[in-house]
Design a protein around this nucleic acid. Structure first.
Lengths: 348, 348
DNA sequence: TGCACGCATGTTGACGTTAACACGCAGGAG
DNA sequence: CTCCTGCGTGTTAACGTCAACATGCGTGCA
């Protein structure tokens, strides 16, 4: 139980639920409001005795600084905006989790906006809603269909993008899609498979494009046949649908799925068709979701370190905010190692 | 390339990156700033001709209202704070996704805070950071160890909690844990299993307690032996560890896992031990994560409609914010139906 | 013809905070 | 003894917006 503290604020015009203000604290402590401000901001040039009196008064009144007033005065919200598409997906939520965590450590709050669709228009609208001093900077997680030029960003607002296609336009952070996908395909070739089929992500997605391209290049460089890729939409459901077709084709001995969820659907379809994994068909995924090591069989996959990506995004953004500069050429590539488990084996 | 637009703002004292203000628009349109404010807020008592001139000026200057000033003046941030623990988990991210979406439709922004641990102290600290006019209301997703009395909430701030243990203290929204868990256990008994083993969630979690309690009650009411539950921590890893013990025990023919991720680990352990699902052991999960229908075998589970929960949370919160009242006794229970798939069968 | 009323628009001031500057006093250098 | 410096603290004004009140003009009714 707290003490009563009736908060006798007179409300001449805009009578809202307002706690104690800096002025109330100043009056109680017998100092000027500026001194309270100094204490509240940790300035050093305040006598210990004065500071103590101010802190006492704050405590007594339950004072908490008004963010709006501070933001209005300083022009900084201590907040970053995060634009995300489908938060419920593993990669997205892990990245956002890391962003929120890293931001908190730096004293920043996160304003989350999701966009109905990842189209340039929707993303632009989302940015508009966050724009103009409601945040100090922006992180765009997954731009998907948007391209560097189709995106109209609020001027003077630092931006970081988790999509390497934006390299050269905005600072970007991303896992090494190309190396990861190439390693996955090469692993299957090294096991002795003649070629590798692709269960592709949606064609408008940047990462999906990069993974498909790497798959194609790796096969071509090894002089192998490049089969027609099967299209999915990242969901397990689409992986299952595609998997039924692949399972019916006895020539298919190795499949590289552009993400783990589609790989899960693929495994389902293969089991259902009675094709054994990995004896009959080897499967490699992408992402290393927490469930990957407990699927049946445990899934060989490419690990994306989403936590690291989130941290780097925040680091790069704060660097820009603090230096009041906008970098264009900074890029961080996070390694994406292949994790070999039990879903891959030589063809029999 | 955009046109130059040098934005000739004089910066007398606090020279920050500040766009056009209401005054700049007023000057350009030849009206008073109050008229601009009226247009900006959609007031009807403005002549069409005047409105057009103002809108033109806004467009020309790229004006966007300053959230800080507006919040300071009106006392409302048009923002809600969301406190979440481990965002990367399915339930959490789906709920937050729905919250963000519902909030956006109502013109509210979401401030996301994650807490390092779900302890009362950490949650209280998180609430502190969001407190006092930086948000208009709070949603606590998963309070876990916190109890209604251990939580010190900022006064005068509307709160909604996604945890039914808070019923009677704060408005709460949650899936029907008890009915869902009971249905899962009853389903297994109906199939002919003599009893049902429990793979439990962490003991400090409210939902885990409810599910365990319902499991116990359902078995007791049917006059069955109540075996010692096996403890997990929600993760697939813990489900796998627990599953190795369960798989070694031939008496175990049916397991109710308190969530789908642990059930996934359990399936892994059972496969590895050569115990067939569902012929040797039946498994029921809880949550119906997107992957549940594509696990092997497809998982019978209890569906939690996280989207619905998120929407109801926002609805209840906004109702409080708008009525400036704090309800205490409102509760919304979302049905949690059993989804029967292929991981359950009569014992053989 | 007079007066009240409605309507579009303008003027004033305050929300809570902090940057910039002013002030007064003590101590040290010339 | 004077002047300068440094330090703790106070005063002033401004950040951008909107609520409340003021103004001025045209219309309709008695």
């Amino acid at each position: 139980m707290a003490s009563p503290a009736p908060t006798a604020t007179n409300s001449p015009t805009g009578g809202r639920r307002t706690g104690a203000s800096i002025g109330d604290v100043a009056r109680l402590a017998g100092v000027s409001s500026q001194t309270v401000s100094r204490v509240s901001n940790g300035a050093t040039n305040v006598l210990p005795e004065t500071r103590r009196r101010v802190l006492d008064a704050m405590e007594r009144l339950g004072y908490a600084p008004n963010h709006a007033a501070r933001a209005l005065r300083t022009g900084s919200f201590a907040a970053i905006g995060v634009v995300v598409h489908r938060l419920a997906r593993t990669g997205e939520s892990s990245t956002v989790d890391a962003i929120v965590d890293a931001a908190r450590r730096e004293g920043y709050t996160v304003n989350l906006v999701d966009v109905a669709s990842p189209s340039p228009d929707d993303v632009t609208a989302a940015l508009q809603r966050l724009s103009n001093q409601s945040v100090d900077g922006l992180i765009i997680v997954r731009a998907e269909t948007a391209t560097p030029t189709s995106l109209s960003l609020p001027a003077r607002t630092p931006v970081v993008v988790a999509d390497s296609r934006f390299v050269g336009h905005h600072p970007a952070v991303g896992a090494d899609q190309v190396a990861g996908a190439a390693a996955a395909v090469q692993h299957l070739l090294d096991l002795g498979h003649r070629t590798v089929h692709l269960l592709a992500g949606p064609p408008e997605s940047g990462p999906a494009q990069l993974r498909a391209q790497a798959w194609r290049t790796t096969l071509a460089q090894a002089g192998r046949v490049v089969p027609e890729p099967v299209q999915g939409d990242w969901s397990a459901e689409s992986g299952y649908a595609a998997g039924r077709a692949l399972a019916a084709d006895d020539d298919v001995t190795a499949v590289f799925s552009a993400n783990d969820e589609m790989a899960t659907g693929l495994l389902h379809a293969l089991h259902e068709a009675g094709r054994r994994v990995p004896q009959d068909v080897s499967v490699v995924g992408f992402d290393d979701i927490p469930l990957a090591s407990h699927l049946w069989p445990p899934l060989t996959t490419v690990r994306q370190d989403f936590t690291r990506v989130g941290e780097e995004l925040v680091r790069l953004l704060l660097e820009q905010i603090r230096s009041r500069a906008t970098f264009v050429d900074r890029t961080v590539v996070v390694p994406a190692p292949l994790i070999v488990r039990a879903s891959t084996a030589p063809p029999t």
